[in-house]
Amino acid sequence: MISSDVIRGYNDTIILYLLLEKESYGYEISKRIKELSDEKYIIKETTLYSAFNRLLKKGFIQSFHKEQTFGKKRTYYKITEAGLLYYKEKCREWELTKEVINRFIKE
């Protein structure tokens, strides 16, 4: 299990990556994170929705309502142009971070 402190700066990246795949809603995204990380990272509800709020405010994602198959209204999110640019920037940032941190890591 990864501690939420370590991964904090990359929650936004993770969410944007999943929204690049397809538009989605809260629970589906947290489930995908759990699956793709082989259950090594489980995002907390509050963390997820703080991130949504932050990304919405910066205009990186948009929200809209969608009826689900069984009639429940859900808030869905989709990525914007600006969100895509930000995601690419974060990817480059990670490459750099990884490279730098790796120099200080001894097996």
């Binding site: 489980i42 907390k44 509800e45 509050t46 963390t47 929705y49 703080s50 709020n53 932050r54």
Partner: peptide, 13 residues
């Protein structure tokens, strides 16, 4: 246990 911390919401919102 997977809910998290409400302080996060208070700060972010």
């Amino acid at each position: 246990s997977e809910f998290g911390n409400i302080d996060e919401i208070i700060e972010e919102f």
